[in-house]
Computed example of a mutant assay.
Amino acid sequence: MILLSWLLWAALLAALAGGLWALYRTPPQVSLRRELAPSAFQGVRTPMALQVQIHSRLPVRYRIEDAVPRTVIPDVQPVFTGELLGTREHRLDTLLTLNARGVHDWPAATVRWADPLGLFWHSVALPVPDRLEVFPGTHGLILPDLLRPLLSEGSLSRTVGLEDPITLRGARDYQTGDPPGRVHWRLSARTGTLTVRELERTAASSLTIFLDTSGGATFTESAVRLAASLVREAMALDLPVAVASNGGSTAPGRGADALHRALLHLARLQPLLDLPTIPSTRPGGNLIILTALAGDALVAQAMRARATASRVVIVAMPEGFYLEPGEKPRRQWSGAPDTIRELERRAGVLAGAGVLVYVLRGNQSVLRLGG
């Protein structure tokens, strides 16, 4: 008799458990909506609001987790738990810290629910398509010679723009650092004082920034930050800007759309070991090349680009020989790569051909590039 009673109770409990399991197989109705900017800069904190609505016709226990991308750190983890019968709304306001550039797809949220006793838990993914564009961080720059002369399209100017070799505004005494090609030999012979020609300046039509990412991951991260900073400076000067790499190039332009294209290209950029291939530049524009190695192939392409570009600038950044913003000077234990030393030896010849060379030597800050 006792055995029969136990069997009846076991059957009753099994029937109850089976009923609960079958009754709660269907998930509650859940809607989740995120409110955040679609794009932001690396290293900043951007606000996010999360709204969740859950409805169930049965008493239910629930847990809703909205997993953020791995490189995004929320101040408060987006998790909602509770018990309900009917409808309930949750709202969470938090800040996100963006630790890495890139285009990040948001993972699906997870909805877990169970009967009031918590005997059987079920889970389902709740797709909420979202994409967060994290642009490289930018930093201030001191650029008296690299960007400030490239103000805008226009006529001849006495102070801004590129020097026009077919014009002559006047003459002045030679100063240390003046290129030999500017010496006015006839006037110098007549006056007995070394004199150089002063030329009018004409503005450029556009700026293209090319990144040679064959220098590795560390260089690439520094290069994209510098490129983003150059883009920002050029946009402030109302100069049409394009960004290029082995992965392609953006269309040159001004305004928000062109800025978004350039920054998105930089956000997606990854190191490549392929030989750099510089695309054709807009005639009359300017080309800035960021590189860690500056090999012969890159220099040859820079010379070819000079056939159409008004000016080509090679910015060599050998890894470990320049300071990021905020870094303190450190001891250098090795010399620059052979390709960089060769580039410095050829800098004078390249300058005569219209290809300027800037090498960030040991403990030189990128903030003073061109200074």
Score class of each variant (00 low, 15 high):
residue 286 N to E: 11
residue 44 V to T: 15
residue 360 L to K: 14
residue 150 L to F: 10
residue 24 Y to D: 01
residue 163 E to G: 04
residue 283 P to G: 06
residue 362 G to D: 14
residue 174 Y to I: 08
residue 130 D to P: 00
residue 370 G to W: 04
residue 128 V to D: 06
residue 115 D to I: 08
residue 201 R to C: 12
residue 349 V to M: 09
residue 182 R to V: 11
residue 160 V to A: 13
residue 255 G to P: 07
residue 167 T to G: 07
residue 22 A to G: 07
residue 281 T to C: 12
residue 92 L to Y: 03
residue 21 W to I: 11
residue 301 Q to K: 04
residue 104 H to V: 11
residue 79 V to S: 01
residue 31 S to V: 11
residue 28 P to Y: 06
residue 331 R to N: 03
residue 334 S to D: 04
residue 179 P to G: 02
residue 153 E to T: 13
residue 106 W to M: 09
residue 303 M to S: 09
residue 218 T to F: 05
residue 119 L to F: 14
residue 54 I to W: 05
residue 315 V to Y: 01
residue 206 S to C: 03
residue 176 T to W: 08
residue 132 L to I: 12
residue 210 F to H: 11
residue 308 T to C: 01
residue 163 E to Q: 12
residue 269 L to C: 06
residue 126 L to E: 12
residue 344 E to H: 08
residue 285 G to A: 09
residue 233 E to W: 13
residue 83 E to P: 00
residue 340 I to K: 00
residue 183 V to G: 03
residue 256 A to W: 07
residue 9 W to A: 12
residue 156 L to Y: 15
residue 72 V to G: 02
residue 125 A to S: 13
residue 110 T to W: 05
residue 362 G to Y: 01
residue 59 P to L: 06
residue 337 P to E: 02
residue 155 S to R: 14
residue 38 P to C: 09
residue 336 A to E: 14
residue 282 R to I: 13
residue 165 P to V: 13
residue 166 I to G: 00
residue 193 T to C: 01
residue 167 T to N: 04
residue 156 L to M: 12
residue 161 G to Y: 09
residue 276 P to N: 07
residue 64 I to T: 02
residue 12 L to Y: 08
residue 189 A to Q: 13
residue 304 R to A: 14
residue 10 A to P: 02
residue 52 V to A: 12
residue 268 R to I: 07
residue 58 L to T: 03
residue 349 V to K: 06
residue 57 R to P: 08
residue 135 F to R: 11
residue 340 I to V: 15
residue 29 Q to A: 12
residue 176 T to C: 00
residue 255 G to N: 02
residue 161 G to K: 07
residue 15 A to H: 00
residue 168 L to N: 08
residue 188 S to L: 04
residue 154 G to L: 08
residue 175 Q to Y: 04
residue 265 H to E: 07
residue 281 T to S: 12
residue 114 A to L: 07
residue 52 V to Y: 07
residue 359 V to E: 00
residue 27 P to M: 05
residue 3 L to F: 14
residue 240 P to N: 03
residue 222 S to L: 09
residue 196 V to A: 01
residue 228 A to C: 10
residue 191 T to M: 07
residue 9 W to P: 00
residue 170 G to N: 12
residue 99 N to D: 10
residue 22 A to C: 09
residue 59 P to D: 09
residue 292 A to E: 05
residue 92 L to K: 04
residue 149 P to G: 08
residue 288 I to P: 00
residue 182 R to G: 00
residue 184 H to C: 10
residue 306 R to V: 10
residue 42 Q to L: 14
residue 45 R to Q: 15
residue 358 Y to V: 15
residue 329 P to E: 10
residue 215 G to L: 03
residue 298 L to S: 05
residue 141 L to Y: 06
residue 86 G to I: 10
residue 244 A to H: 02
residue 353 A to I: 04
residue 5 S to G: 12
residue 281 T to A: 13
residue 150 L to R: 04
residue 306 R to P: 03
residue 207 L to E: 05
residue 300 A to Q: 12
residue 113 W to I: 11
residue 24 Y to H: 02
residue 37 A to K: 09
residue 190 R to E: 14
residue 369 L to D: 01
residue 67 A to K: 04
residue 211 L to Q: 04
residue 98 L to E: 10
residue 35 E to C: 04
residue 300 A to M: 06
residue 186 R to F: 02
residue 77 Q to I: 10
residue 299 V to C: 02
residue 314 I to L: 15
residue 141 L to C: 06
residue 184 H to Q: 14
residue 76 V to R: 11
residue 32 L to P: 01
residue 66 D to L: 12
